[in-house]
């Protein structure tokens, strides 16, 4: 469904992604783990079109000196070079790092904003129902301004908002950052549930143990390169990978 071929991204003279290739098949939950600064978030931003958008916004400054080479295919269509909103409308949706709710909007308005491209009142109602079923706390807080939610609730909101777009492939960037172990467990359970409901997923995480356990396959990204990929057992079998990248 998603295929990334030799993706290279440079910001000015720093290379953040170096010939990265990966593949996500329909229905899979693919994990992407790696140390800080490996380029995980950059990869997500590149796939969702935000890197090129950033270049467009910052043209004329040094920060706008961004180069992106390689190819990204989604459902057979080439999407590198498309603006982020077009990619989102095709069904590839990124739930961004640090949650990023529309902070002064209420929870319900946030969800409505997620349903921006969903046409028709019926479709909207149904999706909203679904999201509320999955995250009952959002219904309880529907009228509350989203900045006043707790971190866990904000993450639920970000997931709910992403689900409102009716994604085909959902990329989630570091959902568990800053959450208590209890909430974290709940969150991972929800993520598994979303995946079983038929939405393909690419999950970027710091929590290696959880991710490897949940994901069918995982990639390890380090120093802007994919250093290993495979099922949990395959990755764990390799002593060097286990010790130097997974720390397990």
């Amino acid at each position: 469904m998603l295929e990334v071929k030799n993706l290279t991204v440079c910001y000015d003279t720093a290379m953040l992604l170096n010939e990265v290739s990966l593949k996500v098949n329909r229905g899979e939950l693919v994990g992407l783990v790696g140390p800080n600064g490996a380029g995980k978030t950059t990869l997500m931003r590149a796939i969702s079109g935000l890197v090129l958008w950033e270049r467009q916004m910052k043209r004329g400054t040094r920060a706008g000196n961004i180069t992106l080479t390689g190819e990204v295919y989604f459902q057979g269509q080439r999407i590198d070079g498309l603006p982020p909103h077009r990619i989102a409308r095709m069904g590839l949706v990124l739930c961004p790092e640090r949650r990023r709710p529309f902070s002064e909007l209420s929870v319900e308005e946030n969800l409505k904003a997620g349903a921006y491209r969903v046409r028709g009142r019926r479709a909207y109602r149904d999706t909203l129902e679904l999201v509320y079923q999955m995250f009952p706390v959002l219904q309880k807080r529907a009228r509350q301004v989203s900045a006043t939610l707790s971190g866990g609730e904000q993450q639920m909101l970000a997931l709910g908002r992403a689900l409102m777009t009716r994604p085909v492939l959902l990329c989630i960037d570091e959902p568990s950052t800053g959450l208590s172990p209890l909430i974290k467990g709940e969150l991972f359970a929800k993520i598994g549930e979303i995946n079983r409901s038929g939405i393909t997923m690419l999950l970027v995480e710091q929590d290696v143990r959880q991710t490897l356990a949940m994901a069918g396959r995982s990639y390890i990204l380090s120093h802007s390169k994919i250093v290993a990929q495979g099922k949990k057992d395959e990755l764990m079998a390799d002593e060097t990978i286990r010790q130097s990248y997974l720390g397990l």
Partner: peptide, 24 residues
Amino acid sequence: TRFGLAVRATAQDMEAANLMGMDV
């Protein structure tokens, strides 16, 4: 209106609005 919601969302967070399929 839908447009109004998009305006307010964009004002809050342009990137997130972009990711929701809004042509910012």
